[in-house]
């Protein structure tokens, strides 16, 4: 089975701190990581390969440093990494990104399954999976939390819904987006990480010309949506600091709740 995993490198936004004086994001020490949902997609691909054999290719788009995400994927057990990197790709919305990734998948060719995380923690759009699937004209199942069986021409999965789940049979080739419930990702093998850093490592870098796209169709230029304004969210909160030790603070807080008829 040939599996392509879409992987994104993201800033680790789960531990964000704000400067108490300016309210600005403290950027120092925020590391880049493999997007958490994508890590589950990698694990799913690797455990499928362990059962059925085959080959796994991790595909990512990003600046040159995003090669780290692919190196780590190789450390986990992926066979090959491809990084789409080009200044022209920068600033892409999901329309342009799904086009770029779709083109790269076409160039790779011959796959049975594409796996990706449900969404990336820096954008939370959850759009790339379905959009790539549509570009490639293959069926999709999103929110997958269990892969029950893989057959020759189809795959049996469970899809998480708000109030339960659905069991779905999907024809192959297909694209699945997965959620954390699916598995526990393994840690990379240190030997694999070392190999991934070598000159001969199976990592390729492709630019716009390599995948045969014009710069006007990718990145910011190829995007259909644009950020026209950014602003700090206006907090309409009173933001009152209640001082004193635990007892005093609790007392004055409950007082405030009573004043506002909240209790």
């Amino acid at each position: 089975m040939r599996i392509i995993v879409l992987v994104k490198q993201v800033p680790d936004t789960t531990e964000v701190k704000l400067d108490p004086k300016t309210g600005n994001l403290i950027r120092e020490g925020i590391e880049s990581i493999i997007n958490p949902d994508d890590r589950h997609a990698l694990e799913a691909a690797i455990s499928l390969k362990e059962k059925t054999g085959g080959k796994i290719i991790a595909l990512s788009m990003g600046p040159p440093q995003a090669v780290d995400a692919l190196s780590e994927a190789i450390g986990m057990g992926v066979d090959e990494g491809i990084l789409l990197t080009d200044r022209a790709f920068a600033g892409a919305d999901t329309w342009a990104t799904s086009f770029t990734l779709g083109k790269a998948v076409e160039k790779i060719g011959g796959f049975d399954l594409i796996l990706c995380g449900r969404q990336a923690i820096d954008g939370d759009t959850a759009q790339i999976g379905p959009q790539v699937a549509d570009y490639l004209k293959i069926p999709q199942v999103t929110y997958v939390f269990e892969i029950e069986a893989v057959r020759k021409k189809s795959i049996l999965v469970k899809r998480r819904m708000e109030d339960g789940y659905e069991r779905i049979q999907c024809e192959l080739p297909a694209l699945l987006t997965v959620i954390g419930e699916l598995n526990t990702p393994r840690y990379a093998m240190v030997g694999g990480l070392i190999d991934a850093c070598r000159e001969k490592a199976p990592i390729k870098l492709w630019n716009a010309a390599d995948i045969g796209v014009q710069t006007c169709d990718v990145g910011l230029e190829g995007s259909l949506t644009h950020v026209i304004r950014t602003f700090a969210p206006k907090s309409q909160r009173q933001g009152e600091m209640i001082e004193g030790d635990a007892e005093a603070a609790a007392k004055s807080l409950i007082g405030k709740l009573k004043e506002n008829s909240l209790i």
Binding site: Q131, Y143, T225
Partner: peptide, 23 residues
Amino acid sequence: ATHVGRDLAPRVSRRIGVGLTAD
């Protein structure tokens, strides 16, 4: 932006060639 909407909206947007803003 339900489990259905987040599955359907991006697929539709790509199909009909339009941009999409999530959430």
